[in-house]
Design a protein around this nucleic acid. Structure first.
Lengths: 231, 231
DNA sequence: CCCAATTAAGGACATATGTCCTTTCGAAAG
DNA sequence: CTTTCGAAAGGACATATGTCCTTAATTGGG
């Protein structure tokens, strides 16, 4: 997985079935841009000139306040679109974006997208689908955050990363690299997350072993989540 | 203003300059639907069949939890689009909608919109603009709610309803009909809102006289809002 | 003008969450 | 094996906010 040379534009387009979206004649305007782990890709307030597609790696989208607090809006894996809302509204970047792993984006300049819109209306439909979906999840997450305490959100998060196969509980890779990030993701402080985790552990809902969290009682977890689930 | 007969479909279309969006041939599929104050227009989970345009009156969009808590997502005045995300995603209604005043909606069936999309791609662009804007404001509001305490959000709200004209502060009609609604709007309890208002009053930032709130010190308010402003 | 029915305001207490700091633990270096 | 350092956990306290209930204010009806 390491050091694998990044594919070319065309192979990414093929991989993600974007052929119809970007006709061959348009691809000359597009670029391939690798990035490093931890790199700041976009900052709140930047003026964007291109639309980006995440084709490899993982990024996080978050808000920073002047006071230094940060709130993670969401994590993204391929295929994700960055800059769609900015393109449509012509406004500066709404949230900051940082690379969680190394990865690759491909990009297309706004200026050429206007032409593409005219020639290939399906591109507008694609954007519409993308933005509608973003709105949907954002709206859902917001309600959860506003209406339920951390315990419910945490339970919901844990459910979202566990999959149930024939009665066995597998816990997938945590979508957050550590507990600090998890805290920012569910919108609380690290301290408080710890507190809630400990409580859950004392009730045998989860088990904490050196930094990693394992689900022990899926049913109790479901009760705690009150039917909510992230995304 | 009362009892004024509602206009016809065509006059609404003209009034809001929707002629290009809905060609004459399409309008036979559209309907005019008046509603009463307080009426529940849509409920969380409903299956929507039509796209609606609010052309008269004021509505509120909110989330209800099984436990009975409610969170107001936003208020809408004409021209507003309802059901866009549901149309695009084909999913059930995300939030409940209630009429704050009497008013009128005009509607177009989803089934016919598909054809419209093909013949008039500008309609897709219109939806894209609409949804992108929704996302933008939603995202902004979410960050505020998650990152700042009620005092900041309240200050920000008060700023948003006051307009400054040549050094004089006018406070517009409160967009919420009462303090309870305001509490739901900024995402807190009525009790707590009262507490914060009282504190602001004691610092001469606002004045409370029988239920209505008047801004006394715009500068202090700006400081409290920390540069944030709703919408 | 007075009273009942509402609506607004506020007191008391409980809970959720944040902040700061100390302690503990485990892994990597020496 | 010991040291050291950073990550992880947790204690103590402060603040924000919620819940429940009581009191005060307001307004339409008689």
């Amino acid at each position: 997985m390491k050091e694998r040379p990044y594919s070319s534009l065309d192979s990414y387009i093929q991989q993600y079935k974007l052929e119809d979206l970007f006709p061959a004649s348009f691809r000359q305007h597009m670029k391939v841009a690798p990035f490093e782990k931890g790199e700041t890709l976009f900052s709140d307030g930047d003026e964007l000139e291109e639309l980006y597609f995440l084709v490899e790696g993982k990024i996080k989208i978050f808000t920073l306040t002047p006071e230094g607090k940060s709130l993670i809006n969401r994590f993204k894996r391929p295929l994700a679109v960055i800059g769609d809302v900015e393109y449509v509204k012509g406004s500066p970047v709404l949230n900051s974006v940082e690379a969680v792993t190394e990865g690759v984006m491909i990009s297309a300049p706004f200026s050429h997208l206007n032409e593409l819109e005219k020639e290939h209306p399906s591109f507008i439909r694609f954007l519409l689908d993308t933005v509608a979906h973003k709105f949907y999840t954002e709206s859902h997450t917001t309600s959860m955050h506003m209406l339920y305490p951390v315990e419910v959100r945490l339970a919901s998060y844990l459910l979202s990363i566990s999959s149930v196969g024939e009665g066995t509980v597998f816990h997938q890779e945590m979508r957050t690299s550590n507990l600090i990030e998890l805290a920012e993701w569910i919108g609380t402080s690290y301290r408080h997350l710890n507190r809630v985790l400990k409580k859950m552990a004392s009730e045998d809902v989860v088990e904490k072993t050196n930094g990693s969290v394992t689900i022990k009682d899926l049913e109790k977890l479901r009760t705690l989540a009150k039917g909510n689930i992230y995304e």
